[in-house]
């Protein structure tokens, strides 16, 4: 490509247009860069900078002096810290377990025979996803109130709750929140798993059937291993999301006359430290704990599952 034997003037004389074009290109900005310029300020201001600033706060005190890990040890010994982390870990564990078992199970059941009933079921499972956030919590506050719930016989006889406050007794809460999260989120994941199952070549299934495998064997031995990375993706993502729990306990706190503390989850504790006590450094330390969990999960998904290609 290069023309070492010629001076630039000679080269220009030989290939006048080519070289000028090449020079023009070299002087221009790198290809594609201008297109990401409008996006960069947002990535920096609301992606990178908040993380760095939170870390900065977490390792300093109110006067800006460096304190090492003191904010972390201080918040860790707060009497509300360990209970809050226990709550979210129990909640996340229950939610993750039900999510993996039932999402994979239902997707496999639906995929057993692809037909119109299957798509109707998928739609029914998926629809509650529209009621995310505060709306889903409100719906379930009604569902857990034995006075009005269509499932009041279940509340009364299985849960033994005659009153709303008994339904949301502290021991029930991790399970109640897991159920709400499952109700809103499972359908979307079922649709995704079903989509992943559809990418399995028919010949593969056909071959297994000819070899005498029944639908049960095909589901567990053939299909399940082939969607393994999607299950891993769902599990890691849900784990990270689960630890961030905020809105559910926040609304239940408002509906429970303070019976459920407003520091039930870790994010709530961080929020209260910032808002009620003005302890931004302590809040930042807890936010940093949660941030590390989220970051680890994200890095794990990006680098290990191979689901998100970064090469073109």
């Amino acid at each position: 490509m290069s023309l070492p034997a010629l001076t630039s003037r000679q080269a220009e004389a030989a290939h006048p247009r080519g070289l000028r074009a090449a020079r023009m290109r070299a002087r221009r900005v790198p290809r594609g860069l201008p297109f990401i310029v409008p996006y960069l300020p947002f990535l920096i201001a609301f992606g990178i900078a908040p993380m760095l600033y939170a870390l900065d706060l977490a390792f300093t005190n109110a006067n800006g002096g460096v304190t090492g890990f003191r904010n972390f040890t201080r918040t860790f010994t707060d009497y509300r810290f360990v209970p809050a982390f226990n709550h979210i870990l129990l909640y996340t564990g229950v939610w993750l377990g039900t999510l993996i078992v039932f999402v994979v199970g239902l997707a496999l059941l639906l995929h057993g025979r692809a037909n119109r009933t299957s798509s109707a079921f998928r739609f029914l499972f998926y629809m509650p996803g529209a009621l995310a956030g505060a709306a889903s919590v409100l719906v379930w506050l009604f569902m857990l109130d034995p006075a009005v719930s269509p499932g009041s016989f279940l509340l009364r006889h299985v849960l033994g709750a005659q009153l709303f406050v008994q339904s949301i007794a502290p021991g029930n809460l991790p399970f109640v929140f897991a159920m709400i999260a499952f109700w809103t989120g499972a359908g979307g994941w079922i649709v995704v798993m079903y989509g992943a199952l559809n990418t399995i070549p028919h010949e593969l299934e056909e071959a297994a059937r000819i070899d005498g495998a029944g639908p049960f064997t095909i589901a567990l031995r053939l299909k399940l291993p082939l969607i393994r990375k999607w299950v891993a993706y769902m599990a890691i993502l849900s784990f990270a999301t689960g630890t961030q729990l905020f809105i559910e306990p926040q609304l239940v706190n408002e509906a429970s006359l303070g019976m459920v503390p407003d520091t039930w989850s870790s994010n709530q504790l961080a929020y209260q430290l910032a808002f009620r006590y003005g302890d931004f450094n302590g809040a930042a330390a807890i936010a940093a704990d949660l941030l590390v969990i989220g970051l680890l999960a994200a890095v794990l998904i990006v680098t290990r599952t191979g689901l998100f290609g970064r090469e073109d």
Partner: peptide
């Protein structure tokens, strides 16, 4: 972009 996208949005709220 990928890492922030996969991180739960709530993790960034307090920061």
């Amino acid at each position: 972009t990928l890492v922030v996208m996969i991180m739960p949005a709530a993790a960034l709220v307090l920061p």
